[in-house]
Design a protein around this nucleic acid. Structure first.
Lengths: 354, 354
DNA sequence: TTGTACGCGTTATCAT
DNA sequence: ATGATAACGCGTACAA
């Protein structure tokens, strides 16, 4: 047949070398049908040992690899997962990404990575995602709006939010309880005698930052302490240092404790206090952060922080997503984790109670 | 026709909602042929304004998105790029990855991310890559062997190595001249009076580490200085601290200068010197690192380091890869960059000469 | 157990 | 300018 001849010729290059063999090429070489080859590459499909051996031998000789693109066209599902991340320069995300990658790899899924530079890019990135027929998406990025979630629902693409939730919209998510962590932190600081608090908040669009600040403020109010001075930061080192200076300016003196929206800002805050303002930490000033990134452990800091169980959270996210993929009917599910207080050496804490 | 009826029914779910529309659905709604729809979504293809408008309207109403899987099956090329990275926990890589992502996104390519946990995983990961018919690969990972490169050549898949090269094998790469950087560093340190050097080397399998150490040793020998004590590290903070202690143990005293295989180890080294050994840095001991990661800038360190021009390198890597994709004939090409000495505050350097 | 035939959703090649 | 039709490489129902 002409068709067969064409197919055979496909792998032939002008220079005589061959490249990109298909299951058909393998079939010809093994003297079996194409569908037999297909079956041999699928676990638990009908195939005699004799044939399987012949096919595998031919495949190995040609260096044949199944074409995942063609496969997912016919099976109507791909093992592609998209991961959306805001900015990798936030030292917290590489760890998350690394764990996600490990977990997905273990589950036989491939990861399509999208980083979101700006806020308005979401629509553009989502349309790229739809094109690739991904099996699911993990979004560890800000700027995901309810209308985006609705599009996920319409398209029946499973979505798991990482460390963010959505008001008035049921959506699967893996979160760390920021409010609770912040409350615990304030309690422990207050019990140790801190009275005047200040907060270096994260960027306005970060839900995580909002929750951390809210938790701290709530608890401070409950304890009838003075309302904290709050300055805005953007999660980076410099804004932590700037924030610290601004706090001192606004208060006319140093506060007792500064709660920072993340570890990097806390480190900037500690450095500004020590190196620029001459404030001893923690003797004169307590500083605490959130996340538990690796540099927080460094001897120069030994930051007091609320560590997120990244490994467990990443695992939960992949499990949640895979279960959503396999049970398309199931409704949204939230999994919440608690932050762990790392006592560190940048804050004076009362001994653990309760 | 039965076929048409089937195709129409495809987007229909049991519950009556529709999902995953195809170009055929759009065609029916716009009252044109399927191939017309296809053309409308392709730039510069024949299509009257009138029809284009009708088709786009129908597509928008349905929320149609072209299926990239099907497209790349027929065009025999995908806009997928695979990126291989050893370990994201090395603080240097997130920046690289972030830049690569930005660049690829700008060029309309999607990024498939593979992280390599171990050394023997390479083969497994590569076979996953072949399955996805990627247009090209950027490898910023150790453990890529000549036989792997040969498979890239056989399969005609463009490969660009990031910060690694291969002996006896021509392969495209973007590198930073580590040897030259290390030599400059030693020269500047020696000119400032440092005589007894020590080196905290990176892991054995890191070519980058080998070059950094080699460059330093060469220059030290040329200057007729004592052979440096060399201890092995593994790029992480702890191994920098351990390395520093080990150096002092081996030498019976502190050296004049320690050159570390990367910034994270240098930071560990500085911390161990200051906090554990009571050595003033840089008054009693000079320490320098490589990479120029963000924490190296922090006030507590202000590390003296050789910064790699990550942005330029990432850009070069994407340019190189895209040009290889577009000119399949062209041979391998190397692009080399110079590291920039950040003078910092952890080493006493002689004023710049020559 | 194996082979035949068809279709996944798209682009490319023809006619018209 | 537009429409029919044939691939792309694979999985799978069905026949043998």
């Amino acid at each position: 047949m002409a068709t067969k001849a064409n197919k055979e010729a496909l792998a032939e290059k002008p220079d005589g070398t061959r490249v990109n063999y298909t299951s058909y090429d393998v079939a010809v070489r093994a003297g079996v049908s194409q569908s037999a080859v297909s079956r041999c590459f699928k676990e638990g499909a009908y195939a005699s040992d004799e044939m399987r051996a012949r096919v595998m031998k031919a495949a190995a000789e040609l260096g044949y690899t199944p074409n995942a693109i063609a496969r997912s066209l016919i099976t109507r599902r791909s093992d592609l997962i998209a991961v959306l991340i805001s900015n990798l320069t936030n030292l917290y995300y590489p760890e998350v990404l690394s764990e996600l990658s490990r977990q997905f790899s273990l589950n036989g899924m491939r990861m399509l990575l999208f980083t979101l530079p700006g806020d308005t890019e979401v629509d553009r990135v989502l349309s790229q995602i739809w094109e690739y027929q991904v099996g699911g998406v993990i979004a560890a990025a800000a700027h995901i709006l309810p209308r985006h979630v609705e599009e996920f629902e319409r398209r029946r693409v499973p979505l798991v939010l990482y460390n963010r939730t959505m008001k008035d919209k049921a959506v699967s998510a893996v979160v760390c309880d920021q409010v609770d962590g912040a409350r615990t932190l304030v309690s422990r600081l207050a019990a140790a005698g801190h009275k005047r608090f200040a907060i270096i908040d994260g960027p306005a669009e970060s839900v995580v930052a909002q929750e951390r600040t809210r938790g701290a403020c709530e608890r401070i109010a409950e304890l009838k302490l003075a309302k904290p001075v709050i300055v805005r930061g953007n999660y980076d080192y410099e804004s932590g240092a700037v924030g610290m200076r601004e706090i001192v300016r606004q208060m006319g003196r140093a506060p007792d404790a500064v709660i920072c929206g993340n570890d990097v800002m806390a480190i900037g805050c500690v450095d500004a206090a020590r190196h620029e303002l001459g404030l001893e930490v923690p003797r004169k000033l307590s500083v605490a952060g959130f996340d538990g990134i690796e540099p927080a452990n460094w001897m120069s800091y030994q930051l007091t922080t609320l560590r997120q169980p990244v490994q467990e959270m990443a695992r939960a996210a992949t499990e949640l997503l895979t279960s959503m993929i396999n049970n398309p009917g199931a409704g949204p599910e939230k999994r919440s984790f608690s932050a762990q207080l790392i006592e560190g050496a940048t804050a004076r804490l009362a001994p653990r109670s309760v």
